[in-house]
Nucleic acid binder design. Structure first.
Length: 290
DNA sequence: TTCCAGGCGAAGA
DNA sequence: TCTTCGCATGGA
């Protein structure tokens, strides 16, 4: 902790560009001298300073929230060591060496991934941003206004047709349904954290708009279920090309991955997704275009 | 124009 | 259980 904020020295396993542009989160924004985002209703800024990372606007009381959000207590060298047995994954971990899995706020994560279905990342970001501007609380920071993600209570009291103004399309009814379930206590997100992976996943999949893939994303990016292995079009491509060599169902791809990577499957998924998508998708590793 | 996106639900086989 | 199809929206 310094006067400026939380300083992480020699942050080998934390590269802000990789973390925030990996497709796991949708609200962190690069404003030129770092990434700005919101943790627990407070604007936080993350800057890369040579080999160190500076996290600004954090008080002593909030330090544990920030450590939890960025998962700073986890030993990523140990995780990488355990996954070294896999040659392709070694390449992927080298390429995305600064990736980490965030602990996002579960409700925001749930709605964001409902929005993600059959959608593109820039459009997902736009919709999540629209929802925040429409129903979140404004926060001023250094002359700029940011918006918190709306609470379940607020979203539960909004009409479907109104939510559609966020440009979320057919997903509006899923968003409203999910918000009501959480607000009314039918779905207790904090309780899911104490349940095993399969039980928590089945609970999430009761919600309209949440299938295998979206449930895995919510479990992995907000509830610390690292057996989760979200299989989207990109992960399916890389798994088929590198490991499986034949067309099988997406569910079986996930089962294959859990068998191979065990309770580190979620970490493997993020490295594989980032490496394969950026290599094939024509995006470089530092924000540029090939 | 047509295709497709970090999929899902419903219907039919 | 598995396959097929429609779905709002917007960019290529």
């Amino acid at each position: 902790m310094t006067d400026l904020g939380l300083l992480i020295k020699d942050a080998n396993n934390f590269e802000p560009y990789q973390v925030f542009e990996s497709g796991q989160c949708f609200r962190w924004e690069n404003d030129g001298d770092g990434y700005a985002g919101i943790i627990k209703d407070k604007v936080i800024k993350v800057k890369k300073l040579d080999r160190d990372i500076l996290i600004e606007n954090v008080s002593k009381e909030e330090i544990n929230d920030v450590i939890y959000y960025f998962d700073l207590d986890r030993d990523y060298n140990e995780i990488k060591g355990k996954l070294q047995f896999d040659a392709y994954l070694r390449e992927a971990m080298e390429y995305g060496s600064g990736l980490r899995i965030l602990n996002q706020e579960p409700f925001e994560c749930l709605i964001s991934y409902i929005v993600s279905s059959n959608n593109r990342i820039p459009q997902i970001k736009r919709v999540v941003d629209n929802l925040s501007k429409m129903y979140g609380k404004p926060i001023k920071y250094r002359g700029k206004t940011y918006y918190t993600f709306p609470s379940p209570d607020v979203l539960a009291n909004v009409q479907i047709c109104e939510v559609q103004e966020s440009r979320c399309g057919f997903r509006a009814e899923y968003i409203c349904d999910a918000a009501k379930r959480v607000a009314w206590g039918d779905l207790d997100l904090s309780a899911l954290k104490g349940q095993d992976y399969f039980t928590a996943k089945a609970e999430l999949m009761k919600v309209k708009g949440i299938g295998e893939k979206v449930a895995d994303c919510i479990l992995l990016y907000s509830l610390q279920k690292y057996e989760a292995f979200p299989v989207d079009v990109w992960v399916n491509r890389v798994m088929t090309e590198i490991y499986i060599h034949q067309k099988i169902s997406l569910k079986k791809v996930g089962e294959f991955a859990r068998e191979r990577f065990g309770n580190l499957a979620g970490f493997a998924q993020l490295y594989l997704f980032y490496y394969y998508r950026n290599k094939r998708g024509g995006v470089t590793n530092d924000g540029g275009i090939n």
